[in-house]
């Protein structure tokens, strides 16, 4: 690990790297900030707005247009649900519903205890294993609503144990 990644990310340092950025630089800047922080905080959005001369409402509007931006930090366990065609045919809608119920969050949100974040993705490229979800990159194949409950329970236990 380099020293740079160990340091706490600094929004001003990121903005200083783009002294002449205009409004057309908004999306790349949002991507860079999310890359560094894992999400777009209010403070970041306001700072970006000040830097580019854009109101926060407009930035939020642009950012919510795209699925890639999130406004809450990732959970300790980041759950991705595939909603691609193959997974859909094999019942991923019910898997997503089960996850929302188990975690009590909507897609794009993080549970209050910061343990889980839920994200919908278009395709994970593992159609043969459909329906598929990943947790921190670990694949779970042939997921059903019943399996969802067990997967979440297991991770909760793991978190409690540590």
């Amino acid at each position: 690990m380099t020293t740079e990644t160990l340091e706490k990310p600094d929004i001003n340092a990121i903005l200083e790297r783009h002294p002449d950025a205009g409004r057309d630089a908004l999306i790349p800047l949002l991507q860079e900030v999310q890359e560094a922080f894992g999400f777009l905080s209010r403070e970041s959005v306001v700072a970006i707005g000040r830097h580019l001369g854009l109101p926060a409402s407009k930035i939020y509007g642009v950012a919510t247009f795209y699925n890639q931006f999130r406004f809450q930090p990732l959970g300790r366990y980041h759950v991705q649900v595939c909603r691609g065609t193959a997974c859909h045919v094999k019942g991923s809608f019910n898997v997503l519903t089960a996850l929302k119920q188990a975690l009590k969050v909507e897609a794009g949100q993080t549970t209050r205890d910061g343990l889980f974040s839920l994200e919908v993705v278009a395709c994970l490229g593992a159609c043969g294993l459909a329906p598929v979800i990943t947790v921190n990159g670990e694949f779970f194949a042939g997921v059903t609503p019943a399996k969802v409950d067990k997967i979440i329970r297991d991770f909760r236990k793991e978190a409690e144990a540590s």
Binding site: P55, S57, T64
Partner: peptide, 27 residues
């Protein structure tokens, strides 16, 4: 002032403030 803008996309698009907060805490 730009207190409000289009938020979201497609059938979920709506007019809202930054972070969909109430008008009372917006600009």
């Amino acid at each position: 002032v730009s207190a409000i803008d289009f938020i979201g996309r497609g059938s979920r698009a709506h007019i809202g403030t930054a972070f969909d907060e109430g008008l009372n805490v917006s600009s």
